[in-house]
């Protein structure tokens, strides 16, 4: 099972993922063609990474009107979405259906731009220095999130004891 998982609190907003993603998929640097991106807001900017959640029951595929579905979950690697570019009618229903706003529009191909977890070995994870991006199943994410949470709790307890 290989999904791309995000421990968002660790993200530093460096956009390295936005750079390597289009490089390995299309051989160019262009954040507009990235399947993962950081949303920035306010001043000073705060930020949050976003990408496909590899939903077990993907609403984007449910919404796709073509037959066969031109956006579908890659069951072989149990994570990531695949696009049938020849079948896709470019209607944008999948974008509408995604509850996480994690599907964008490819600026030149005009097809859905969605994470395929690099067929099981996501490149962005290799360049995420704060370890905000992880691979594994959702249980891996749960364990990582627990690490941050439990770690903080233990630190608080230690502080209390030492006081």
């Amino acid at each position: 099972m290989t999904m791309l998982l995000i421990a968002a609190d660790r993200c530093t907003g460096c956009r390295m993922c936005e750079l390597v993603c289009p490089l390995v998929h299309e051989g160019v640097f262009n954040p507009d063609k990235s399947r993962i991106w950081i949303e920035f807001e306010g001043m000073p900017e705060l930020f949050h990474p976003n990408t496909c959640r590899s939903c077990g029951k993907p609403p984007c595929a449910d919404a796709c009107p073509t037959e066969p579905k031109s956006i579908y979950r890659d069951e072989k690697i149990d994570g990531g979405m695949k696009i049938l570019e020849d079948v896709c009618i470019k209607c944008g229903k999948c974008i509408e259906a995604c509850p996480f706003a994690a599907i964008d529009w490819h600026p030149t191909k005009k097809t859905p731009l969605v994470c395929d977890v690099c067929d099981g070995d996501p490149e962005c994870v290799k360049f995420c220095s704060p370890n905000a991006l992880l691979t594994g199943g959702k249980s891996t994410l749960a364990a990582e999130m627990r690490k941050d949470y439990v770690g903080a709790q233990i630190a608080k307890t230690r502080e209390k004891i030492l006081k």
């Binding site: 530093t12 907003g13 460096c14 956009r15 390295m16 750079l19 000073p44 705060l46 930020f47 360049f127 220095s129 704060p130």
Partner: peptide, 16 residues
């Protein structure tokens, strides 16, 4: 409250 990095930087020396 937060570590921040400039674009393409793994060092994230900026501190919010």
């Amino acid at each position: 409250v937060k570590d921040k990095g400039c674009m393409a930087c793994p060092i994230y020396c900026t501190k919010l």
